[in-house]
Nucleic acid binder design. Structure first.
Lengths: 198, 198
DNA sequence: CTAGTGATGACATGCCGTGTCATCGGGCGT
DNA sequence: ACGCCCGATGACACGGCATGTCATCACTAG
């Protein structure tokens, strides 16, 4: 009845488009204003002009909103690893892949990533989810190496090391506010790891 | 009133002792019987002869029951690192520490750890919590190295690598059912990592 | 004997996340 | 143009999770 009227007033379509984007924007706003824990899903949905139920149709849970942007990273990893020439050495593959990911997925998003990092730091639940995303990445790398014929232990070891390189490098990149490129930091961190294990 | 009678019959104290242990045992039983997700906190509490509220006084949430046994591991790491001689090289410290942890905290618990691993695999939420526990361990190692004067990047890198060694080694140890000792596997995994980064 | 302490029970509450059905607009075929 | 299906959303119900609060009771100290 009421919605009837509203819909007719809109006179374009039944739903405003971009529900997912609106939800995401509303969530980020509220998280910034009140913090993550103090923000409820009904609040987010209301600000986006939608219902709670619709929120959960777009995001599996409240935490997921923060990581939606990087959802396709595992698939990207899989693609990169599948397309690499068979002759590529594992560590060389990692270095190349990290460079590509740094340029296409991180460089230029520094401010947003910094903001997200602060939010993640503020909440245990978000920290858990962040770790899970890293694990998903590691799993993609591991499967990529398995598909290339490496044995299970080697694949796992390389995958974990790869993710260590990423996370340590990104932390460094976000902490130090000089204009250094992420890919350069990755190279440096890898050198330091090599020195440690020499 | 009812409890009155029961208490007087017990004639020892108002509460049966070991509430925490009973809750943990009840939870493990139910998880094994029905799986983690299908088990509710009221169920666990009822089987332990306690109330839901009391469950949450002993465990922060339902997942935590599974990891209560390893709660003191970060403190143990801190202690080990603080007591090590100042002359110890970082990687040597890690190797020694891993050996100690393997012998005192893992060797002999293989069956239980295997069971827990299967449970953790069965539930996303448990996987997240498991990752958080690993992260807590890494954090302890990192702080230990910071306290020893290492710079932030090096400490983080060593800590992450340390946890990678632990988790890959334990996975290997639990997967292969030969009688190999965990500490031996750790040595082998470290050798393989060194070879990878040579 | 009394006051304090600490673990527990009892109750209320709010949010999370899901299942289910109804609704409505757009696309598709005829 | 008509009618049908599909997909996104709303509306509602529901159970579980987690927490705050107060009362209760045994034990302990003085």
């Amino acid at each position: 009845m009421t919605r009837h009227v509203i819909t007719r007033l809109a006179a374009v379509s039944r739903w405003e488009p971009g529900a997912r984007e609106r939800l995401q924007a509303a969530a980020l706003d509220l998280f910034a204003e009140q913090g993550f824990a103090a923000t409820t899903v009904p609040e987010i949905a209301a600000r986006a002009g939608l219902t709670t139920r619709t929120f959960f149709r777009h995001f599996a849970d409240k935490r997921e909103v923060l990581f939606a942007d990087d959802a396709e990273m595992p698939a990207m990893v899989a693609k990169l690893m599948a397309e690499a020439p068979d002759t590529a050495e594992p560590m060389e593959l990692i270095v190349q892949g990290l460079r590509t990911m740094a340029e296409t997925r991180f460089e230029g998003r520094r401010a947003a990533l910094c903001h997200r990092r602060d939010l993640v730091r503020s909440d245990e639940g978000l920290r858990e989810r962040d770790l899970r995303k890293r694990a998903a990445l590691a799993e993609a790398v591991r499967e990529g190496f398995l598909a290339r014929g490496l044995d299970a232990t080697r694949a796992a070891l390389l995958a974990e090391t790869c993710v260590t390189l990423v996370s340590v490098s990104i932390a460094e990149w976000l902490d130090r506010d000089d204009g250094r490129r992420l890919s350069g930091i990755v190279d440096e961190v890898l050198d330091r790891l090599r020195a440690e294990l020499a």
